[in-house]
Design a protein around this nucleic acid. Sequence first.
DNA 1: CCGTTGTGTTTACGCTGTAAACTACGGTCG
DNA 2: CGACCGTAGTTTACAGCGTAAACACAACGG
Lengths: 211, 211
Amino acid sequence: MAPLSIQTTHARPALSRERIAATALALVDRDGLEALSMRKLGADLGVEGMAIYRYFPNKAALLAGVVEVLLAELIIPPPSDVPWQQVFRDLSRAYRALLLRHPHAIPLLATLPLSDPAAARAAGAVMAQLRAAGFDAQSALKTLATITSYVVGVAQWEVGTAPFRAERGGAPFPLPPDADPYLVELAPQLAEDDCEETFAFGLDVIVRGLE
Amino acid sequence: MAPLSIQTTHARPALSRERIAATALALVDRDGLEALSMRKLGADLGVEGMAIYRYFPNKAALLAGVVEVLLAELIIPPPSDVPWQQVFRDLSRAYRALLLRHPHAIPLLATLPLSDPAAARAAGAVMAQLRAAGFDAQSALKTLATITSYVVGVAQWEVGTAPFRAERGGAPFPLPPDADPYLVELAPQLAEDDCEETFAFGLDVIVRGLE
DNA sequence: CCGTTGTGTTTACGCTGTAAACTACGGTCG
DNA sequence: CGACCGTAGTTTACAGCGTAAACACAACGG
């Protein structure tokens, strides 16, 4: 065969933690979280599933790697003299945008414990921001818990109610005929609702409440 | 054998949707969500796993049944002339208490779409409360989304950080030696933190913001 | 040239959800 | 009474899962 100096068989780019995690995220984005299996991921990588275990000790570690890739998309600026309200809003929106870019991965970030290194690093960076803005450590931590809970929760809510908003031009709502009367009452409002506006509403509530 | 007029073989109480769902919840509370499998649930019921399929078409339906049992624990009073702030706080605390009674089931309630009948019914009841308090439909829905997101998010946060609070009397914190420096900075504050107080803090923020 | 190391493959095991066929019992009708 | 039938639960089977263990083979340093 050919000399294969740099693995020329179809130019498969060689495995690495980064490439595996990025491909896993792409698979999740494309087919959903439950579709991520070692064998399918291996197939996407052009490799047998077991090869992944050379880079991640188990699936939990792989998912942590995906979280790392996700959180790397979130750039948290160092403390500055910008008013904290502005920083707070910007960070919230950036996190929200990240979640909406990867809706299938939201459960991964929703149940994220602080024992995850990437989560701890991001949390530390936000804490630094808040403390520089005059929050004491206790309040900063509580505020962080509050805002992340809110942002993640709303994103989950949006994804969970997305079916009601979809196809608004065609058949109005995909309500089954035996739908709950309460739901029938709620659905039209959901369709009218602009999610971005809802998010801004709650964000305003929290910022005003913090002041 | 014996006449078995009312199934006297060890008095096994006969299967039913309610008993299956309740047993499933008990299993989840005891062993965690990922430990819930049809076969193990069957064993807990004194039956083969496949028997469950006579009552639930698939596992997703079974989980929906568990959610129904969970939300049945949440009693939402009809609208009254109590000030809405009071009602709002009481409902939030009741939901929070429910989540903390079943920490392993939180992911089930976190990703709950409104297409779930039990969720829709509970949402409708809360909406009725808010509307009676003078909220217009839009605001009521946004407020509902905000508060449920917050309550669920904080509960997830608490459960996720619980390892840091556990065993505070013995070895201070179970931090691995290669822990992230940011995490090391954060952990002591977590240990000091009273979760109930954190929750009240965010709840106050939201109520004040809503006024 | 020969061992070592690193990378990926093969095989295997126990577990999962669930489709399909089967068994056994309780009541109802001819 | 005997034939029937629906209901409840069992048995068997299959494809897919995570992953442990053994293996194959290229690259490299001595």
